[in-house]
């Protein structure tokens, strides 16, 4: 065990080691999941239950406000909230990545990415349960949308984006305790400013920037369109791919500069 000397080398090394530890964070993630839902009947399906409940409430109000046909708006709203839990809510949870793992960080020699992957793993498990609930309900209501194949690359791309974002958010929140509260508020605003439950077409042209330049709106579109059987536009893809590249460059720089110190911040 010796450390790579250069800063860039050790930042890359952190990511590579995190990938190599996949079997461990996978198992630790499963154990934590079991621990979290110990003595509950539904387990992680409680998260799915909350998705359905929120969607029903929003659909009841906004579905009728929008006046459009009920069938398509319901699927749109559920898929929107589900997508938000992947790209938006996960960023709020990411504020606690390092602070909540402080005891593990004082105990084991793991790269920072280990904890980030652990968080992404948790997000994926929750999303998978929501997806199952989503499909089951739409099947029961006889409005099952056949997903487009681009759902798979879109999902994988977004995992990359949120993993990089989670690292950044986790590091800043560990250093500055104010930031975790700030991110909670900003994401709450973005939830309403992004097309989670309102259709983008209804936006007046001068407010269209809310969708065009909003990274969370673009991530949402890339995920939701194929889920409802459509295909994301070239603009959606380009935006999210460039965003992911930018996020990862920033994440590597953050690792280069502050990787060693995070253990002292938590």
């Amino acid at each position: 065990m010796s450390y790579p000397r250069g800063r860039l080398a050790s930042a890359v090394h952190d990511v590579v080691q995190g990938v190599e530890l996949t079997p461990i964070w996978y198992q630790v993630g499963v154990n934590q999941l079991v621990a979290r839902y110990r003595r509950t009947i539904l387990g992680p399906f409680w998260v799915a239950g909350s998705l359905i409940a929120t969607a029903l409430a929003l659909w009841f109000v906004f579905g009728s406000l929008m006046g459009a046909d009920y069938h398509s708006t319901f699927a749109y709203i559920v898929a929107g909230i589900m997508g938000w839990s992947l790209v938006g809510a996960s960023i709020v949870e990411a504020t606690a990545i390092f602070t909540s793992s402080s005891s593990m960080m004082q105990m084991h020699r793991f790269p920072l990415m280990f904890y980030v992957f652990l968080q992404t793993h948790r997000v994926v498990i929750n999303f998978a349960h929501q997806l199952v609930a989503f499909w089951l309900i739409l099947l029961a209501l006889r409005m099952f949308p056949i997903p487009n194949w681009t759902f798979i690359p879109a999902f994988l791309l977004l995992l990359g984006t949120i993993t990089g974002m989670s690292l950044l958010v986790g590091m800043i929140s560990a250093r500055y305790k104010d930031v975790s509260y700030m991110i909670g508020i900003v994401m709450q605003m973005l939830f309403f400013l992004s097309p989670v439950f309102w259709p983008t077409e209804n936006l007046p042209p001068k407010r269209q920037f809310l969708v065009d330049y909003n990274p969370f709106a673009q991530m949402l579109e890339v995920l939701r369109k194929p889920l409802l059987g459509g295909m994301p536009s070239a603009y959606n893809w380009t935006f999210v791919i460039l965003l992911t590249v930018g996020v990862w460059i920033t994440a590597l720089i953050a690792l280069m500069l502050y990787r060693k110190r995070v253990v002292f911040w938590v």
Binding site: M1, Y3, Q106, H108, R109, K260
Partner: peptide, 28 residues
Amino acid sequence: AGIYEPTTGTVDVSGRMSSTIDLGHGLD
């Protein structure tokens, strides 16, 4: 144990490491 990286200087360890430092830390 590699939990802290030194500010300056080098640490080289060869062999499989087992460390138990903080009592109760990392336990559920």
